[in-house]
């Protein structure tokens, strides 16, 4: 085999260069790109934030404004798609989008209203999350559900104790 075989091969193969960006890029089905957040479905449960390895999704409660902020920062995302996997309401969809380069930071923020504890008035979850859980639980214990975890615990304990004298 002579060294000319390289040239022969090159001629045989021809041009393999893809025309991108002047034509559409060929991305195989199921490739993981930008996650798309559907704000009409999101219930603010923070499941996505819990599995997010680089903490690209963060969930923070803003008590001043009374909202829970679900914030996705594209510049830290590793595009693993775990968030879409664990989302209980399928509000996250993994798209094939990859043209994400930016000069100004890109964040997708969803703000959900917090619901206040019917006893102590402390915000503890979002209205949508509460409705979602109520929908799952059905008839049982709706009045307990409007209490924050602390008050719920106290209330449950109180219901087991028969007052003999004084208060608990």
């Amino acid at each position: 085999m002579s060294r000319l075989s390289w040239i022969k091969k090159a001629l045989e193969v021809g041009v393999v260069t893809r025309k991108y960006p002047f034509e559409h890029a060929e991305v195989p089905e199921g490739s993981r790109g930008l996650p798309e957040f559907d704000s009409s479905k999101c219930i603010g449960c923070s499941a996505c934030a819990n599995v997010c390895t680089p903490d690209a999704i963060r969930v923070v409660d803003d008590l001043n404004e009374g909202v829970r902020r679900v914030e996705y920062f594209v510049g830290r995302c590793i595009f693993c798609g775990r968030c879409a996997e664990v989302c209980p309401v399928s509000a996250i969809r993994i798209t094939k989008e990859f043209e994400l380069a930016y000069k100004d930071e890109v964040r997708f923020i969803i703000e959900l209203k917090l619901v206040k504890c019917s006893n102590c008035g402390k915000p503890f979850t979002t209205t949508r999350h509460l409705n979602h859980v109520l929908g799952k639980v059905g008839e049982g214990l709706p009045e307990l559900m409007t209490l924050c975890p602390d008050c719920r615990r106290k209330s449950t304990v109180n219901s087991f104790i028969t007052p003999v004298g004084g208060t608990v």
Binding site: R18, P21, A25, C42, V74, F98, E99, A101, I109, E111
Partner: peptide, 29 residues
């Protein structure tokens, strides 16, 4: 980033294309 994404980034740097996404903030009930 896939190679096309890098090319896109360079194109953005050279001003051939515009930034596709920007920060969005949605407040729902």
């Amino acid at each position: 980033p896939r190679p096309e994404a890098i090319i896109y980034g360079v194109a953005l740097a050279l001003g051939i294309v515009k930034q596709k996404y920007s920060t969005t903030k949605v407040r729902v009930e």
